[in-house]
Design a binder for these strands. Structure first.
Length: 137
RNA sequence: AGAGUGGGUCCGGCGGUCGCCGGGCGAAUAGCCCGGAGGAAAGUCCGAGCAGGGCAGGGCACGGUGGUGGCUAACGGCCACCCGGGGCGACCCGAGGGAAAGUGCCACAGAAAACACACAGCCGAUGGCCUUCGGGCACAGGCAAUGGUGAAAAGGUGCGGUAAGAGCGCACCGCGGCGCCGGCGACGGCGUCGGCAGGGUAAACCCCACCGCCUGCAAGACCAAGCAUGCCGGUUGGCGCUUCGGCUCCUCUGUUCGGCCCGAACAGCUACCGGCGGGUAGGUUGCUUCCUCUUCGGGGGAGAGCCGGCCGGCAACGGUCGGUCAAGUGUAAUGACCGCCCACCGCUUCGGCGGUGAACAGAACUCGGCUUACGGACCCGCUCUUAUA
RNA sequence: GCGCCUGUAGCUCAAUUGGACAGAGCAUCGGUCUACGGAACCGAAGGUUACACGUUCGAAUCGUGUCAGGCGUA
């Protein structure tokens, strides 16, 4: 039976971990999430979250983090394992020539976060594999 | 009933599934049980605890507070009262000491801005000259009412008075001195005397009273790892005693007393002192009531801790008795989904549907306050108006 | 978390210790010139001095409180 746990070894904790994932430069995004991925040697997935101060006040930031953690926990067996995922919630969408900067962060709920996570993780892992393949050649 | 005013309380409940953090039991990363955001957790504006550094002591400087009395561990907080202002009233607001210690500033306008010998002006009664006896002329001189300026220019209004005027005289109001009474006091009341002292600004310097060492849990302690016992500066002389190792005193030099002074302390040679630099940013602890005893069930004591009763006090608060006392993270837990009930809001085809249980907002060493943000619901006291009895 | 600093035109800065209408350069706009443009010259517009309350006769300046933005610290 599959268990949906979320322990400390499934999280990115150290400053060096975050720097490493960012340095891999494998980034995909949709309207309200940016996701970095990097393969690790642990055999399971790890999650890191980064939400800037400008995203909102502490209540809003906490809520987004909890939603993202819950989405990761319930989707962990559907995600490609052996990767570190770093989710970044940018404060607002910057559009070129669009309807202007969005001041209020986009309203997110649990289902959209979960769907976005699954789709983006798949894309990111594909991109990462391609990248390592290119590096081998 | 309407309008208003002061204060207090609360922010869903029950059940299920899957998770997170901490504690207990446990061999256990198995399992079970228990606990898990706010009135502002916020801003970091004050005050304390706690920790490190500093410290013989005193003074200056610097910073803060500012009606009076009390409460408190302390406060710039709270309570009561006084004074001033607002409101019919309940009540609200006030950085509210000193301008008769000194200095500075008060632009423009105005004659003049703190100084009164007054710019325009009024009068010219008294004295001089002339006279048609109505008065006229010039001077000496008198005056501060009127005018204009300004935020502000030697009390205000009225009557009398005068040549014109003026607290010159009088009445009322305002002001100052003195005395008595009440009050712990700020201050108030009454009486009496004085015709009247004199601009504003102290959130300008300042004076007075009181308070204040500096830095802050990223403080600090321990362990592991790592770097470099790296660099620079300083280190007298004399008298006396001597068991020849040294010792006392004086002087000098250096350092410290994180700004200055008085003054003080320490050191003065091959080991110390002072300064600059180099390295690490991992873990434990501080850290969540504390200490202690234990037969591991618990007991006892201590806390500016919380709740309730009683007593004292107008109150803030204090005393006493009983009960109670686990949020504790560290890239940072307190969540997600579902069902029912109860509220509330919007839409409504009146069947329901939708909505983070609504606003503001998330503990980071801990307390006491202040300030700021903010949607409702409920309760209590009081005031005014209207109506009824 | 703790400790600090700064807010003036679109941008960069002034304002003589509180004194009137808050100035200057660049940028913007309109003219002159030119075939057109640039440059140059002339002129104009642009401000709740971050916001609120207070002290004062008078506040960009002084005081208090908010709101933004930034810095340091293991």
């Amino acid at each position: 039976m599959l268990r949906y746990l979320f322990k400390k070894n499934q999280r990115l904790v150290k400053e060096a971990d975050f720097k490493g994932v960012l340095a891999h430069k494998c980034c995909v995004y949709n309207d309200f999430i940016r996701l970095y991925a990097r393969p690790n040697e642990l055999g399971h997935a790890r999650l890191g979250l980064s939400i800037g101060r400008k995203y909102g006040n502490a209540v809003v930031r906490n809520r987004v983090k909890r939603l993202a953690r819950e989405a990761f926990r319930l989707s962990q067996h559907d995600l490609p394992s052996g990767y570190d995922y770093l989710l970044i919630f940018p404060p607002k969408r910057s559009k070129k020539g669009g309807s202007g900067p969005r001041e209020v962060p986009p309203a997110v709920d649990f289902e959209t976060v979960r769907q976005s996570l699954l789709v983006l993780a798949e894309k990111a892992v594909r991109k990462s594999r391609q990248k390592t393949a290119n590096a081998d050649m």
